[in-house]
Simulated assay, not measured.
Amino acid sequence: MHWNVGKVRITKIVELETVGSTRFILPLATNEEIQKLPWLIPHFANDEGRLKMSIHSLVVETPQRRIIVDTGLGNDKQGRNVPTWNNRNDPFLDTLTKAGFSPDSIDTVLCTHLHVDHVGWNTTLVGGKWVPTFSNARYVFGKTEYEYWRDHSVEPDKIAVFADSVKPIADAGKADLVASDHKLADEITLIPTPGHSPGHMSIHIQSDGEAGLLSGDVAHHPCQMAHLDWSSTADSDPKQSAVTRRDLFSRFADTPTLVIGGHFNAGHIRREGDAFKFIALG
Rank of each mutant, 00 (worst) to 15 (best):
G49T: 00
D94Y: 07
A226C: 06
P194N: 05
C223A: 14
P38K: 02
R80N: 11
D70R: 07
A211P: 02
P42V: 03
Q224W: 08
H152F: 05
P103D: 00
P91L: 07
D117A: 15
K12N: 11
N86L: 05
G49N: 03
F44W: 13
H113Y: 13
D208R: 09
L248M: 13
A29H: 09
V154F: 12
W121G: 00
E210D: 11
T124H: 09
H204Y: 15
D217Q: 10
D104S: 12
S180C: 03
G142F: 00
P63M: 06
G142T: 06
K7Q: 14
D151N: 12
V131E: 12
E32Y: 12
T189Q: 12
V60T: 05
A45K: 05
F134N: 00
H268F: 15
P42F: 03
I68M: 08
L184H: 09
A45D: 01
L28T: 14
L184R: 01
D117Q: 05
I191H: 11
W39G: 08
K143W: 02
L184E: 00
E145M: 05
G128F: 12
H56A: 14
V5Y: 02
Y146S: 03
R9Q: 13
L93N: 04
S135W: 06
D247M: 13
G267F: 05
K143S: 08
P103Y: 07
I169M: 02
D76P: 04
G267D: 06
K52I: 12
D171C: 04
F249H: 03
N122A: 04
W230I: 11
A234N: 09
I279P: 03
A170V: 02
D254W: 13
Y139S: 00
A275R: 07
F278C: 06
T124E: 10
D171P: 00
T124K: 10
V69P: 01
V161Q: 07
G173M: 01
G212R: 01
I191M: 11
N4T: 14
S57R: 06
H115A: 10
K239D: 11
P222M: 07
W85F: 14
D235T: 11
G100F: 04
A175P: 02
P103G: 03
R23N: 09
S232T: 13
L214I: 15
D274N: 15
G209Q: 08
S57L: 09
I68F: 06
T144I: 12
A179H: 09
S165L: 13
R9T: 15
P91W: 12
N31C: 15
R251D: 08
R50S: 12
A29Y: 09
